[in-house]
Amino acid sequence: MASSHTISVLVDNEPGILARVVGLFTGRGYNIESLTVAETNAAEKLSRITIVTTGTPMVIEQIKAQLDRLVPVHKVHDLTLEGAHIERELALVKVRSSGERRVEALRLADVFRAKVIDAKTDSFVFEVTGTTEKVDSFIGLMSALGLVDIGRTGIVAMTRGGEAL
């Protein structure tokens, strides 16, 4: 019954807005699987928050209604319900290894179209972008090749086609 939904929330970029949104989720016992936030319209001081959450259809409906009720929230969109959309995540992956394992890490990074953004003689930092599944599988492969550290952005998402939300 419970399924994952990606929800896009357009909010006023004002102090406390993230606390309001996160507090709503913790206070009412909803899950947050991933959350990203950044200002997207500096002129109008708007930020976009992308939240991935899970719940039954009734809970998801409730989450959206509760978000929409917050005073600084402009729009709430359930991308999962509203049709085709794309989701991307960015990860920085640090790998420390030498010899054949170092070469293999570099080769796999090439397959995943990950970029080397820092290199030392015994380490790389890769930047990989893609769906959550792609990032997961890249990290899975790297764990056998000297994985040291991971930083992930969480999901950002957008509808397909020319229409704005």
Partner: peptide, 11 residues
């Protein structure tokens, strides 16, 4: 008047 009150406990 509050959409969040609808379908919260009872469908």
């Amino acid at each position: 008047i509050d959409p969040s009150s609808i379908n919260k406990n009872v469908r």
